[in-house]
Amino acid sequence: MAIFPAESRLGKHLPHVKFIYPNAPALHITIYGMMTPAWYDFLSPSASSINHEQDEKGMLRSRQQVLQIVRDEMETSNIPANRIVIGGFSQGCVLSLLTGLTSEYRFAGIASLSGYLPLPEKIMDMATDANRKTPIFWGHGTADQAVKYEFGEETVEFLQKNNYAVDFHSYKRMGHSASIEEITDLLAFFKQTIPEQQPVTAKI
């Protein structure tokens, strides 16, 4: 199963995987001065690095919402955590990384697209050992103007220094979006982390 806070059409290529696309609530965004669907508030209009002011309260609130989805699926659909990938794009990427690094559940993988490191000053204090070896896919376009490509590089460098297994994919001339090349790489990641299970036959 893949919990992906950013709708995509990946499911048609992976019929054995259940995709869940949570909807972000409407929030008042400080830098826009208006209500819009978002997982947390944007506080810094011109951040120069991943060490910018972040909406910790909003991030942690949304983290709990995603973890509740995980618990519900584990209980009602009998899907083990090691068959679940947490992933997302932009804010969904940030939320997925926060959820994956700090969860007590050992996930199959974390898919991070065009985002940045959440709460860099305290994330390692919040991190659990459950996903220290969980594979992390990171995709980022070099022409991204919404979330700077350098933010992705900083995040990957930070994670690798802390011994996380991050596979960094850089896409030339791609903006704050996706490309066929990135989707192809992401599909390969899903097939590796959530392989199709072979039916078990009983021999008598």
Score class of each variant (00 low, 15 high):
62 S>Y: 05
72 D>V: 12
116 Y>F: 13
49 S>L: 06
121 E>F: 00
32 Y>E: 14
137 F>I: 03
139 G>M: 05
69 I>R: 00
188 A>P: 08
79 I>S: 07
125 D>T: 09
12 K>V: 12
68 Q>E: 13
40 Y>R: 00
87 G>S: 08
128 T>H: 08
52 H>D: 11
201 T>C: 13
76 T>P: 02
64 Q>F: 11
149 Y>E: 05
6 A>E: 14
18 K>G: 05
52 H>R: 14
60 L>N: 12
183 I>N: 11
77 S>C: 09
97 L>E: 01
8 S>A: 10
172 K>P: 14
79 I>G: 03
36 T>S: 13
82 N>W: 11
124 M>Y: 05
27 L>K: 12
185 D>P: 06
38 A>M: 07
62 S>V: 04
115 G>Y: 07
144 D>P: 01
55 D>F: 03
77 S>V: 03
84 I>Q: 03
87 G>K: 05
29 I>L: 12
45 P>S: 10
184 T>R: 15
43 L>D: 12
155 T>C: 00
52 H>S: 13
148 K>W: 03
89 F>M: 14
178 A>K: 01
16 H>S: 08
22 P>Y: 00
48 S>K: 14
41 D>H: 12
203 K>F: 15
1 M>I: 05
38 A>E: 05
111 A>H: 07
62 S>T: 04
150 E>H: 04
51 N>H: 05
26 A>N: 14
135 P>G: 13
188 A>Y: 07
94 V>R: 01
58 G>V: 12
84 I>A: 06
166 V>N: 05
174 M>S: 08
129 D>A: 15
67 L>I: 12
4 F>G: 00
136 I>P: 04
121 E>A: 11
86 I>K: 03
129 D>Y: 12
147 V>F: 01
14 L>P: 06
79 I>C: 01
98 L>V: 06
82 N>K: 13
97 L>M: 11
66 V>L: 11
7 E>T: 10
66 V>Q: 01
204 I>P: 14
139 G>P: 06
39 W>I: 01
42 F>Y: 13
